[in-house]
């Protein structure tokens, strides 16, 4: 006679695998979404190499990222803009944050002549924006 064997598990088992799967999928989604939101950094440039580079850790209330590509074109938010448009953007930014916390980040190609970047610095100074940072790579 065949006697059925009753299989019994010990305790209550909670399967966490689907939960971890979903959590990681959410993490990947937000990583990709935040990367897409920072579309200013998508223009390919060869950044200058310096030895005194700092880590970009300090939060700022506002930031305008201007990318200067090797063909001396100015990009803001993925669009090609003129210096006049940047000047008006800087004026608006300076009016919105009179405390002076606004920062302009210049991502310039290392091969671009200084004449393409110099007007940006002058425009920032004239708009009253004193915080400028150059995106660089450490040696």
């Amino acid at each position: 006679m065949r006697i059925p064997i009753r299989v019994r598990r010990l305790g209550i088992s909670l399967n966490l695998t689907p939960l971890i799967d979903i959590v990681f999928l959410l993490v990947i989604f937000f990583l990709v979404a935040s990367h897409a939101a920072r579309s200013e950094s998508t223009e390919p440039v060869e950044l200058p190499l310096v030895g005194e580079a700092l880590d970009d850790q300090e939060p700022v209330p506002g930031r305008l990222v201007v990318t200067v590509t090797a063909d001396q074109a100015l990009h803001v938010g993925g669009r090609i803009v003129t210096l006049k448009q940047i000047t008006s953007l800087l004026a608006e930014a300076a009016a919105e944050s009179p405390s002076g916390g606004y920062e302009v980040r210049i991502r310039g190609d290392r091969r671009v002549p200084f004449r393409a970047v110099e007007p940006l610095m002058v425009a920032c100074a004239q708009a009253g924006i004193t915080r400028i940072g150059y995106a660089v790579l450490p040696h």
Binding site: L31, S41, P48, Q126, I132, G133, V136
Partner: peptide, 26 residues
């Protein structure tokens, strides 16, 4: 899943540093 996550996160991501400049405004 962890392996794929870290591979995707590290691919084509160059960590940019900052060279700060403090201007005199106006």
């Amino acid at each position: 899943l962890l392996l794929i996550f870290f591979v995707c996160a590290s691919t084509d991501q160059v960590r940019e540093s900052l060279l700060p400049t403090e201007l005199a405004g106006g």
